[in-house]
Design a protein around this nucleic acid. Structure first.
Lengths: 245, 245
DNA sequence: CAGTGGTCTAGACCACGAA
DNA sequence: TCGTGGTCTAGACCACTGT
């Protein structure tokens, strides 16, 4: 608590939350703020990093730090039994996809339970809003399961189109396991998503299996931690089964 | 990519993943490593921060950096329709809980849809393994919903005991919404969880409602990002409903 | 081009842990 | 006590953005 950067972050946060600085407002430069608070630039940057991770401030290299629009988060939503997987990221979200055929590397191969080097269809879905890339999803389907065609340039940014194509090809997804961890963006992802390295991201690894337990789809989602959230909605249709432990 | 700390992190990661440094091994001191790589200490610390967030390295203030045991993650698991919420964090995990009555602050009050200052039962669940605190869960139940007693000192670290007590009190949880975001630990949480400030955590906000749509429980879970994951398993019992979009 | 953030240096002092 | 990580300084140079 006695950290210098924490108290500076608290002060700046108050300015934003009380509306002294409105969304879209450009903050004074880091050098200005550093002299104003009588600290060195690294210390001030630590304070700004706190606000950035909280999603209150957005850094734009070369142009400044800006107050973020609230409620401006990409949402990876999962409804009951995984039926609805949708992006409720508001209007103006464009999704694009690219399809290619790649060979399975050792890690992907072991997860998909196919030999290393097997042919996979890879889809890369990106969503952008107001020009900036907001999410990245890489979806892999082994050729041994199905050889699929192009995904449309619209629809879910999370690769739902691939599931539609799997269904059309007669492959039934029966179970899905999703693993969410927090980590830093790789330099590759940072470049694509246009975020700083050493920025936390929410990484979702989604594994879909069919009735035989065979893995039919692997999806790797990367959501910038400061502008994304994972939302799970579960409804208990039957009564008396709320036996959470 | 050309970052100095990234390449150092890559080098150290290779040493760990190839087994040159085994789990539990203490790394050379940061000063040693800095001189070895001919960088300043802050730069070396950036490299270590990358590995820390990846869960490969564990920092212990005053004693050093250590290679982490793999697969040593606390798991917040959600089964179908939220029935199974369990900690699969392996053996040796102890859970303790504290109960108190607090007044709702403005934020909690608005989420729980009760007046500010209303009486709430607060449970604080902590889990520890091998002596170190691993997770923190704060669960709030308005007195207008139910006035509950002590939670046992065992069971789920995620406050499942509270749901059991709610059920025993005749309160049926019908729907649960869980929101997962990545943020830094607050200084308070950092102190409790014994982690550095500016460490990413997975924060889960769980909101349970009854048949009338009334909020009956608010749970705030804090999981250290480097040693936790959220796991969702969804099974589609009926066929032909895999219409993910 | 000027101004901004991104990275880095070569130290300093403090807080913590173990002996 | 001594070595460790945690924080901080007062700069420097590079990369990016907009004019």
């Amino acid at each position: 608590m006695a950290n210098r950067y924490q108290s500076i972050a608290d002060d700046l946060r108050r300015l934003i939350e009380t509306g002294k600085w409105l969304p879209g407002h450009r903050l004074p430069s880091e050098l200005d703020l550093a002299t104003r608070y009588s600290v060195s630039t690294p210390t001030l940057r630590n304070a700004l990093e706190v606000l950035q991770v909280e999603g209150l401030v957005e850094k734009r290299h070369g142009s400044g730090n800006f107050v973020r629009q609230p409620q401006d988060r990409v949402r990876y939503a999962i409804g009951e039994c995984g039926v609805e997987r949708q992006a409720s990221s508001g209007e103006g979200t464009e999704v694009s996809s690219e399809r290619s055929v790649v060979a399975a590397d050792s890690r992907t191969a072991s997860v998909l339970e196919v030999p290393t080097g097997s042919a996979l269809t890879e889809y890369v879905f990106t969503s952008r809003r107001l020009g900036s890339l907001r999410s990245l999803a890489r979806v892999y389907v082994p050729h041994s399961v199905a050889v699929l065609g192009e995904a449309g340039a619209s629809g879910s940014p999370w690769g739902g189109a691939v599931r539609d194509m799997l269904a059309a090809a007669g492959v039934q997804v029966m179970a899905t396991v999703e693993r969410v961890v927090s980590r830093f963006a790789t330099s590759n992802e940072a470049q694509l998503l246009h975020i700083a390295t050493r920025t936390p991201v929410l990484a979702v690894e989604r594994l879909s299996t069919d009735a035989n337990g065979q893995v039919v789809e692997l999806a790797l989602l990367v959501l910038p931690g400061d502008r994304a959230e994972v939302l799970l909605t579960t409804r208990c249709a039957h009564e008396g089964e709320v036996a959470a432990r």
